[in-house]
Computed example of a mutant assay.
Amino acid sequence: MPDDAAQIRTLIENWAEAVHRGDLDGVLADHTEDIVMYDVPPPHEGIHGLAAYRASWPPFFQWQAQGACFDIDTLDVTAGPDVAYAHALLRCGTPEELAESPTLRLRLTLGLRKESGRWQVAHEHHSFPHD
Rank of each mutant, 00 (worst) to 15 (best):
residue 51 A to F: 02
residue 80 G to D: 06
residue 90 L to K: 04
residue 77 V to C: 01
residue 83 V to T: 15
residue 62 Q to P: 00
residue 76 D to C: 02
residue 88 A to P: 02
residue 82 D to Q: 11
residue 79 A to G: 03
residue 75 L to A: 05
residue 59 P to R: 00
residue 59 P to Q: 02
residue 76 D to Y: 01
residue 62 Q to E: 15
residue 69 C to N: 06
residue 71 D to M: 08
residue 79 A to N: 06
residue 83 V to M: 13
residue 71 D to H: 13
residue 80 G to M: 04
residue 88 A to E: 05
residue 52 A to S: 07
residue 54 R to Y: 03
residue 79 A to L: 07
residue 54 R to G: 01
residue 68 A to I: 08
residue 70 F to T: 03
residue 51 A to D: 15
residue 71 D to R: 15
residue 57 W to C: 04
residue 84 A to Q: 02
residue 90 L to N: 08
residue 55 A to R: 12
residue 87 H to V: 08
residue 87 H to C: 09
residue 68 A to L: 10
residue 63 W to A: 14
residue 51 A to C: 01
residue 52 A to K: 11
residue 60 F to G: 14
residue 77 V to F: 04
residue 77 V to Y: 03
residue 77 V to M: 04
residue 89 L to T: 13
residue 56 S to L: 09
residue 85 Y to V: 09
residue 74 T to I: 02
residue 66 Q to C: 05
residue 76 D to F: 02
residue 76 D to P: 00
residue 87 H to S: 07
residue 75 L to T: 04
residue 69 C to D: 12
residue 52 A to N: 12
residue 58 P to F: 09
residue 80 G to N: 06
residue 77 V to L: 04
residue 54 R to N: 03
residue 71 D to W: 05
residue 69 C to M: 11
residue 89 L to F: 09
residue 84 A to P: 01
residue 73 D to K: 09
residue 60 F to E: 09
residue 88 A to Q: 01
residue 90 L to S: 04
residue 69 C to L: 11
residue 55 A to F: 05
residue 68 A to W: 10
residue 56 S to Y: 14
residue 56 S to F: 14
residue 73 D to W: 06
residue 85 Y to G: 08
residue 65 A to F: 01
residue 54 R to M: 01
residue 65 A to S: 15
residue 89 L to N: 07
residue 68 A to Q: 10
residue 90 L to A: 10
residue 73 D to C: 08
residue 53 Y to A: 11
residue 58 P to V: 09
residue 73 D to S: 10
residue 83 V to D: 07
residue 75 L to C: 06
residue 82 D to M: 08
residue 61 F to Y: 10
residue 62 Q to G: 01
residue 90 L to M: 10
residue 79 A to T: 08
residue 72 I to W: 07
residue 65 A to V: 00
residue 60 F to V: 12
residue 81 P to M: 11
residue 75 L to I: 05
residue 72 I to N: 11
residue 91 R to H: 15
residue 66 Q to D: 12
residue 52 A to I: 00
residue 91 R to C: 10
residue 67 G to Y: 04
residue 78 T to F: 13
residue 67 G to F: 05
residue 60 F to L: 13
residue 71 D to A: 15
residue 91 R to S: 15
residue 69 C to Y: 04
residue 64 Q to H: 03
residue 82 D to A: 13
residue 66 Q to K: 14
residue 67 G to T: 03
residue 83 V to W: 08
residue 65 A to H: 06
residue 91 R to W: 15
residue 67 G to M: 03
residue 77 V to N: 04
residue 76 D to E: 08
residue 90 L to C: 10
residue 62 Q to R: 13
residue 90 L to T: 03
residue 53 Y to S: 08
residue 88 A to F: 02
residue 88 A to W: 01
residue 90 L to Q: 03
residue 79 A to W: 07
residue 62 Q to L: 00
residue 56 S to E: 05
residue 71 D to G: 11
residue 69 C to V: 15
residue 78 T to M: 11
residue 59 P to K: 01
residue 73 D to M: 06
residue 64 Q to C: 01
residue 67 G to P: 02
residue 87 H to W: 11
residue 91 R to G: 11
residue 74 T to P: 03
